[in-house]
Amino acid sequence: MSEDQDLQQTRNEVKMHLRIGVALTVLILISIGIALIPFNTALHLVIGLGIAVVMATLVMAFFMHLKGEKKFVHWTMITAAFFFVILIALTLLAYFDYAGSATIFKF
């Protein structure tokens, strides 16, 4: 896009950044609030991490301008995220698939 259009877009983004900041604050307060209510641990994990993922998406899309960025950058981060998931998932698979040993978790 032209120089002027680019500058105008930046001007428009200022308000949006403030709104994202407010959204992040609200989400963190919700996160803390929910954490202080005792209920099923597994559900806590899902909700807590879920809120974190939403917050992360907001930061990445708007503060880091991923929304509107070129494909190569998207693919680099997707690849990194994919291999991170592999690291966790396959190691978890290895841990939960131990050959019979009952004491394996008693490190």
Binding site: F83, I86, L90, L93, A94, D97, Y98, A99, S101, I104
Partner: peptide
């Protein structure tokens, strides 16, 4: 190459599902 690493760890007591992968 990122998906094969545990073939260095076959003798750590892993069970069949993981080692099959």
């Amino acid at each position: 190459s990122f998906l094969v690493w545990a073939h260095h760890m076959y003798l750590t007591g892993m069970d069949t599902k993981v080692s099959a992968f």
